[in-house]
Design a protein around this nucleic acid. Structure first.
Length: 266
DNA sequence: CTTCACGCCTGTCAGC
DNA sequence: TGCTGACAGGCGTGAA
Protein backbone atom coordinates (compact mmCIF):
# COMPACT_ATOMS: atom_id res chain seq x y z
CA UNK A 1 0.00 0.00 0.00
CA UNK A 2 2.75 2.38 0.96
CA UNK A 3 4.77 1.45 -2.13
CA UNK A 4 1.77 2.23 -4.33
CA UNK A 5 0.96 5.44 -2.54
CA UNK A 6 4.42 6.99 -2.21
CA UNK A 7 5.14 7.89 -5.84
CA UNK A 8 1.61 9.08 -6.41
CA UNK A 9 1.11 11.45 -3.50
CA UNK A 10 4.58 12.55 -2.35
CA UNK A 11 4.98 16.25 -3.01
CA UNK A 12 1.25 16.93 -2.95
CA UNK A 13 -0.42 19.22 -0.48
CA UNK A 14 -3.41 18.28 1.67
CA UNK A 15 -5.92 21.05 1.04
CA UNK A 16 -8.84 19.78 3.08
CA UNK A 17 -9.98 17.04 5.45
CA UNK A 18 -13.51 15.78 5.77
CA UNK A 19 -14.75 13.30 8.37
CA UNK A 20 -17.97 11.34 8.46
CA UNK A 21 -16.52 9.63 11.53
CA UNK A 22 -14.17 11.98 13.39
CA UNK A 23 -13.73 9.26 16.01
CA UNK A 24 -11.30 7.54 13.62
CA UNK A 25 -8.84 10.21 14.73
CA UNK A 26 -7.48 9.03 18.04
CA UNK A 27 -5.29 12.03 18.72
CA UNK A 28 -5.43 15.03 18.88
CA UNK A 29 -9.05 16.20 18.89
CA UNK A 30 -10.45 16.35 15.42
CA UNK A 31 -10.43 20.14 14.95
CA UNK A 32 -6.79 20.34 15.94
CA UNK A 33 -6.06 17.35 13.71
CA UNK A 34 -7.65 19.13 10.77
CA UNK A 35 -5.72 22.31 11.48
CA UNK A 36 -2.40 20.47 11.66
CA UNK A 37 -2.94 18.39 8.54
CA UNK A 38 -4.36 20.95 6.12
CA UNK A 39 -2.02 23.06 3.98
CA UNK A 40 0.78 20.60 4.59
CA UNK A 41 2.84 19.00 1.89
CA UNK A 42 3.28 15.24 2.07
CA UNK A 43 7.05 14.95 1.96
CA UNK A 44 7.43 11.20 2.20
CA UNK A 45 5.40 8.07 2.76
CA UNK A 46 6.76 5.22 4.86
CA UNK A 47 5.77 2.30 7.03
CA UNK A 48 6.58 0.96 10.46
CA UNK A 49 4.91 -2.32 11.36
CA UNK A 50 1.28 -1.90 10.39
CA UNK A 51 1.38 1.90 10.55
CA UNK A 52 1.45 3.93 7.33
CA UNK A 53 3.20 7.23 7.91
CA UNK A 54 2.98 10.46 5.96
CA UNK A 55 5.77 12.91 6.82
CA UNK A 56 4.48 16.48 6.52
CA UNK A 57 6.34 19.71 5.80
CA UNK A 58 5.57 20.89 9.35
CA UNK A 59 7.65 18.05 10.88
CA UNK A 60 4.41 16.43 11.93
CA UNK A 61 3.64 12.91 10.80
CA UNK A 62 0.17 11.72 9.82
CA UNK A 63 -0.18 8.12 10.97
CA UNK A 64 -2.78 5.63 9.79
CA UNK A 65 -3.38 2.11 11.09
CA UNK A 66 -6.00 0.26 9.04
CA UNK A 67 -7.15 -2.03 11.82
CA UNK A 68 -8.81 -5.17 10.50
CA UNK A 69 -10.89 -3.91 7.61
CA UNK A 70 -9.57 -0.48 6.69
CA UNK A 71 -8.27 0.49 3.26
CA UNK A 72 -6.73 3.62 1.81
CA UNK A 73 -8.06 4.53 -1.61
CA UNK A 74 -6.69 7.13 -3.98
CA UNK A 75 -9.65 8.39 -5.97
CA UNK A 76 -11.05 11.28 -7.93
CA UNK A 77 -13.59 13.30 -5.94
CA UNK A 78 -16.01 12.48 -8.75
CA UNK A 79 -15.67 8.73 -8.29
CA UNK A 80 -18.62 7.06 -6.56
CA UNK A 81 -18.18 7.01 -2.82
CA UNK A 82 -17.50 3.71 -1.06
CA UNK A 83 -19.89 2.75 1.75
CA UNK A 84 -17.64 3.22 4.78
CA UNK A 85 -15.41 6.18 4.04
CA UNK A 86 -14.60 7.65 7.47
CA UNK A 87 -12.05 10.30 6.45
CA UNK A 88 -11.21 12.05 3.19
CA UNK A 89 -8.00 13.96 2.51
CA UNK A 90 -8.31 16.28 -0.46
CA UNK A 91 -5.04 16.71 -2.35
CA UNK A 92 -3.97 19.64 -4.51
CA UNK A 93 -3.19 17.32 -7.41
CA UNK A 94 -6.94 16.84 -7.80
CA UNK A 95 -7.34 13.40 -6.21
CA UNK A 96 -8.40 12.46 -2.71
CA UNK A 97 -7.22 9.87 -0.24
CA UNK A 98 -10.14 8.03 1.33
CA UNK A 99 -9.94 6.01 4.51
CA UNK A 100 -12.61 3.34 4.11
CA UNK A 101 -13.08 1.31 7.28
CA UNK A 102 -16.26 -0.77 7.75
CA UNK A 103 -15.55 -1.97 11.28
CA UNK A 104 -14.09 1.31 12.58
CA UNK A 105 -11.09 -0.48 14.08
CA UNK A 106 -8.68 1.78 12.23
CA UNK A 107 -6.83 4.56 14.03
CA UNK A 108 -5.45 7.87 12.79
CA UNK A 109 -3.07 10.28 14.50
CA UNK A 110 -0.99 13.34 13.80
CA UNK A 111 1.95 14.21 16.00
CA UNK A 112 5.41 15.65 15.93
CA UNK A 113 7.67 13.22 14.10
CA UNK A 114 10.36 13.44 16.77
CA UNK A 115 8.20 11.67 19.34
CA UNK A 116 8.79 14.55 21.78
CA UNK A 117 5.15 15.62 21.78
CA UNK A 118 3.80 12.14 22.37
CA UNK A 119 5.42 8.72 22.00
CA UNK A 120 5.12 7.47 18.45
CA UNK A 121 2.80 4.45 18.23
CA UNK A 122 5.73 2.22 17.29
CA UNK A 123 8.00 3.50 20.08
CA UNK A 124 8.31 0.05 21.64
CA UNK A 125 7.81 -2.03 18.52
CA UNK A 126 10.12 -4.90 17.66
CA UNK A 127 12.40 -5.27 14.63
CA UNK A 128 11.14 -5.04 11.04
CA UNK A 129 11.25 -8.48 9.41
CA UNK A 130 12.11 -6.96 6.03
CA UNK A 131 15.04 -4.89 7.27
CA UNK A 132 18.64 -5.72 7.96
CA UNK A 133 17.93 -5.53 11.68
CA UNK A 134 15.91 -8.75 11.58
CA UNK A 135 18.84 -11.06 12.11
CA UNK A 136 18.67 -14.54 13.56
CA UNK A 137 20.25 -13.05 16.65
CA UNK A 138 17.55 -10.37 16.87
CA UNK A 139 14.81 -12.98 16.69
CA UNK A 140 16.52 -15.15 19.30
CA UNK A 141 16.94 -12.13 21.56
CA UNK A 142 13.28 -11.10 21.53
CA UNK A 143 12.24 -14.70 22.23
CA UNK A 144 14.94 -15.16 24.86
CA UNK A 145 13.53 -16.39 28.15
CA UNK A 146 9.96 -16.30 26.87
CA UNK A 147 7.84 -19.14 28.15
CA UNK A 148 4.68 -18.15 26.25
CA UNK A 149 3.25 -19.87 23.20
CA UNK A 150 5.11 -19.01 20.03
CA UNK A 151 2.07 -17.85 18.06
CA UNK A 152 0.77 -15.20 20.48
CA UNK A 153 4.35 -14.00 20.92
CA UNK A 154 4.78 -13.54 17.17
CA UNK A 155 1.53 -11.56 17.08
CA UNK A 156 2.90 -9.23 19.76
CA UNK A 157 4.12 -6.15 17.91
CA UNK A 158 6.62 -5.40 20.69
CA UNK A 159 8.56 -8.51 19.75
CA UNK A 160 8.39 -8.51 15.95
CA UNK A 161 6.78 -5.78 13.84
CA UNK A 162 4.01 -6.24 11.36
CA UNK A 163 2.91 -9.86 11.69
CA UNK A 164 -0.83 -10.54 11.80
CA UNK A 165 -2.88 -13.70 12.13
CA UNK A 166 -2.57 -14.80 8.51
CA UNK A 167 1.17 -14.41 8.16
CA UNK A 168 1.97 -15.98 11.52
CA UNK A 169 0.05 -19.13 10.60
CA UNK A 170 1.80 -19.24 7.23
CA UNK A 171 5.26 -18.63 8.69
CA UNK A 172 4.85 -21.28 11.40
CA UNK A 173 3.69 -23.78 8.79
CA UNK A 174 6.65 -23.00 6.57
CA UNK A 175 8.97 -23.39 9.56
CA UNK A 176 7.14 -26.59 10.57
CA UNK A 177 6.55 -25.31 14.11
CA UNK A 178 3.36 -25.95 16.07
CA UNK A 179 1.78 -22.63 17.19
CA UNK A 180 1.41 -23.91 20.77
CA UNK A 181 5.09 -24.67 21.24
CA UNK A 182 6.64 -22.70 24.10
CA UNK A 183 9.11 -20.18 22.74
CA UNK A 184 11.88 -21.34 25.06
CA UNK A 185 11.64 -24.91 23.76
CA UNK A 186 12.42 -24.07 20.13
CA UNK A 187 15.60 -25.70 18.88
CA UNK A 188 18.30 -23.77 17.05
CA UNK A 189 17.20 -25.38 13.79
CA UNK A 190 13.60 -24.34 14.38
CA UNK A 191 14.60 -20.77 15.18
CA UNK A 192 16.58 -20.67 11.95
CA UNK A 193 13.64 -21.96 9.95
CA UNK A 194 11.34 -19.42 11.59
CA UNK A 195 13.80 -16.64 10.90
CA UNK A 196 13.86 -17.59 7.23
CA UNK A 197 10.11 -18.18 6.95
CA UNK A 198 8.91 -14.83 8.29
CA UNK A 199 10.44 -12.54 5.65
CA UNK A 200 9.76 -15.14 2.99
CA UNK A 201 6.03 -15.15 3.71
CA UNK A 202 5.83 -11.36 3.90
CA UNK A 203 7.79 -10.83 0.69
CA UNK A 204 5.64 -13.32 -1.15
CA UNK A 205 2.46 -11.68 0.15
CA UNK A 206 3.67 -8.25 -0.93
CA UNK A 207 4.59 -9.56 -4.39
CA UNK A 208 1.02 -10.82 -4.68
CA UNK A 209 -0.29 -7.49 -3.45
CA UNK A 210 -1.77 -8.63 -0.18
CA UNK A 211 -4.44 -11.01 1.05
CA UNK A 212 -8.10 -10.30 0.36
CA UNK A 213 -10.88 -12.29 2.02
CA UNK A 214 -13.50 -9.61 1.85
CA UNK A 215 -12.54 -6.05 2.54
CA UNK A 216 -8.83 -5.60 1.88
CA UNK A 217 -8.29 -3.48 -1.23
CA UNK A 218 -5.27 -1.76 -2.69
CA UNK A 219 -5.27 2.00 -3.30
CA UNK A 220 -7.20 1.57 -6.53
CA UNK A 221 -9.75 -0.72 -4.95
CA UNK A 222 -8.37 -3.96 -6.40
CA UNK A 223 -8.22 -7.19 -4.40
CA UNK A 224 -4.92 -8.85 -3.51
CA UNK A 225 -3.97 -12.33 -4.66
CA UNK A 226 -2.06 -13.91 -1.82
CA UNK A 227 -5.20 -15.72 -0.61
CA UNK A 228 -4.72 -18.09 -3.55
CA UNK A 229 -1.18 -18.90 -2.39
CA UNK A 230 -1.98 -19.59 1.27
CA UNK A 231 -0.73 -22.94 2.54
CA UNK A 232 -2.81 -23.29 5.71
CA UNK A 233 -4.79 -20.17 6.58
CA UNK A 234 -8.51 -20.96 6.28
CA UNK A 235 -7.72 -24.19 4.46
CA UNK A 236 -9.07 -26.40 7.27
CA UNK A 237 -10.30 -29.70 5.87
CA UNK A 238 -8.20 -29.38 2.70
CA UNK A 239 -5.07 -31.46 2.08
CA UNK A 240 -1.67 -30.19 3.20
CA UNK A 241 0.35 -29.42 0.06
CA UNK A 242 3.39 -31.05 1.61
CA UNK A 243 2.02 -34.32 3.01
CA UNK A 244 -1.67 -34.55 2.17
CA UNK A 245 -2.90 -34.60 5.76
CA UNK A 246 -6.05 -32.49 6.24
CA UNK A 247 -5.39 -29.00 7.60
CA UNK A 248 -6.90 -28.46 11.06
CA UNK A 249 -8.31 -25.34 12.65
CA UNK A 250 -7.73 -24.69 16.35
CA UNK A 251 -7.88 -21.68 18.65
CA UNK A 252 -4.61 -20.38 20.08
CA UNK A 253 -4.51 -17.26 22.20
CA UNK A 254 -8.10 -16.66 21.21
CA UNK A 255 -7.32 -16.53 17.51
CA UNK A 256 -8.37 -18.93 14.79
CA UNK A 257 -5.24 -20.93 13.93
CA UNK A 258 -4.51 -23.30 11.06
CA UNK A 259 -1.94 -26.06 11.01
CA UNK A 260 -0.95 -29.27 9.35
CA UNK A 261 -1.02 -31.65 12.33
CA UNK A 262 1.56 -33.90 10.67
CA UNK A 263 4.07 -31.25 9.59
CA UNK A 264 3.71 -29.18 12.77
CA UNK A 265 3.98 -31.47 15.79
CA UNK A 266 3.09 -30.21 19.26
C1' DC B 1 5.12 -12.15 32.90
C1' DT B 2 1.35 -14.67 30.98
C1' DT B 3 -3.29 -16.01 29.58
C1' DC B 4 -7.94 -14.99 29.07
C1' DA B 5 -12.23 -12.45 28.42
C1' DC B 6 -14.08 -8.52 26.66
C1' DG B 7 -14.98 -4.30 24.11
C1' DC B 8 -14.77 -1.64 20.00
C1' DC B 9 -17.93 -2.08 15.08
C1' DT B 10 -20.17 -4.18 11.04
C1' DG B 11 -20.70 -7.76 7.80
C1' DT B 12 -21.05 -12.67 6.24
C1' DC B 13 -22.25 -17.27 6.57
C1' DA B 14 -24.03 -21.70 8.40
C1' DG B 15 -27.73 -23.85 10.53
C1' DC B 16 -32.35 -24.14 11.87
C1' DT C 1 -37.24 -16.21 3.88
C1' DG C 2 -35.98 -14.83 8.46
C1' DC C 3 -33.69 -15.36 12.61
C1' DT C 4 -29.69 -16.51 15.68
C1' DG C 5 -25.15 -17.27 16.74
C1' DA C 6 -20.41 -17.86 15.45
C1' DC C 7 -16.79 -15.81 13.35
C1' DA C 8 -13.71 -12.30 11.12
C1' DG C 9 -7.43 -9.44 8.93
C1' DG C 10 -6.26 -5.80 15.38
C1' DC C 11 -5.35 -4.21 19.63
C1' DG C 12 -5.97 -2.13 24.27
C1' DT C 13 -7.51 -2.94 29.02
C1' DG C 14 -8.29 -5.24 33.21
C1' DA C 15 -8.61 -9.42 35.97
C1' DA C 16 -6.63 -13.59 37.54
Amino acid sequence: MVRDLAPRIAGQCIVGVDASFPGAVVWPEFEEFRRRVTHQEIRHVSRRGKYANFGLSSEDVLIIHRGMTGSLLLRSPRDPMESYVRLRFELDGGSELRFNDPRKFGKVFVMNASGAERPLPWAEMGPEPLNGDFTLKALSTVLQGRTGLIKPLLLNQRLVAGLGNIYVDEALYQARIHPQRRANTLTAAELERLHRAIPRVLTSAIERRGTTFSSYKDIEGRAGEFQTALQVFRRDGAACYRCGTPIVRLVVGGRGTHICPACQRA
